[in-house]
């Protein structure tokens, strides 16, 4: 039976890239929608996000996507969050003067420090923009066939510190140690963009398409 993937469309950014990457990774039935019924009828859900977190959450709530997402998660539907999508799943973000998020995971998203530099004194630019290595902290079915320390594409100014949480599935190093991926039960989310991470990203999405939501 063909599985349907819903890409949650709450008006933030271009979702075609996510849709194209899912198709390239093997999904034949991808629906970009905010309609609760359609999302809940899907076999898997991708929750992308681009832009400022306050606007993202406002739109999510306005369209009741937060409720839909919660229902789907409780039902055990596999969910994949991307970038601001991942950040929205946390307890709180310090972006835009501080915003309460959806609280699926414990943790506060914070900004990279100002005058931020590497161990050897090299100035580190913000946004953290480009390809960085992801150290797979914990085993997870979604990492199958992806080498430890593989490169993925990041672009963000806020991040979730990779300490003090048992849901961090991978981390990156950029002067500070940040969470590259979080996971718990049937939810997995990445700070990087799998849809822009070439072969490694497509492999991760392909793994998501066959994942049964357990780990």
């Amino acid at each position: 039976m063909t599985q349907r993937v819903a890409v949650l469309d709450y008006g933030m950014g271009n979702l075609h890239s996510v849709e194209s990457a899912l198709r390239e990774a093997g999904a034949s039935d991808v629906l970009v929608t905010a309609d609760a019924e359609a999302v809940l009828a899907a076999d898997r859900i991708v929750f992308p996000g681009v832009g400022a977190i306050r606007d993202c959450l406002a739109e999510l709530r306005r369209l009741d996507c937060d409720k839909t997402l919660r229902l789907a998660v409780n039902r055990g539907t596999p969910v994949f969050g991307i970038c601001v999508g991942m950040q929205s799943l946390m307890t709180r973000s310090e972006e835009n003067g501080g915003v309460d998020c959806l609280g699926f995971f414990d943790g506060t998203v914070t900004r990279f420090p100002r005058n931020h530099s590497d161990d050897d004194g090299t100035k580190l630019k913000v946004p953290h923009m480009g390809w960085n290595q992801v150290s797979q902290g914990l085993e997870h079915p979604l990492w199958d066939g992806i080498e430890d320390n593989a490169y993925f594409y990041f672009v963000h100014s806020f991040f979730l510190p990779a300490v003090g949480s048992d849901c961090v599935m991978g981390s990156f190093d950029y002067g500070v140690k940040g969470s590259a991926a979080v996971g718990k039960g049937n939810v997995f989310a990445t700070q990087f963009h799998p849809e822009k991470s070439h072969d490694n990203g497509l492999k991760l999405l392909a793994n998501f398409l066959t994942w049964d939501g357990t780990c």
């Binding site: 950014g13 271009n14 075609h16 890239s17 194209s20 990457a21 390239e24 594409y153 672009v155 963009h193 849809e195 822009k196 991470s197 070439h198 990203g201 497509l202």
Partner: peptide
Amino acid sequence: IASQVFIPLTVGGGVRTVTDIRRLLNAGAD
């Protein structure tokens, strides 16, 4: 390009307004 390329895509040239930017982002520019 955006439907076939799975790395970041930057687009420019003649961008004048917020609407131009939105259209390019909607077309698939990162």
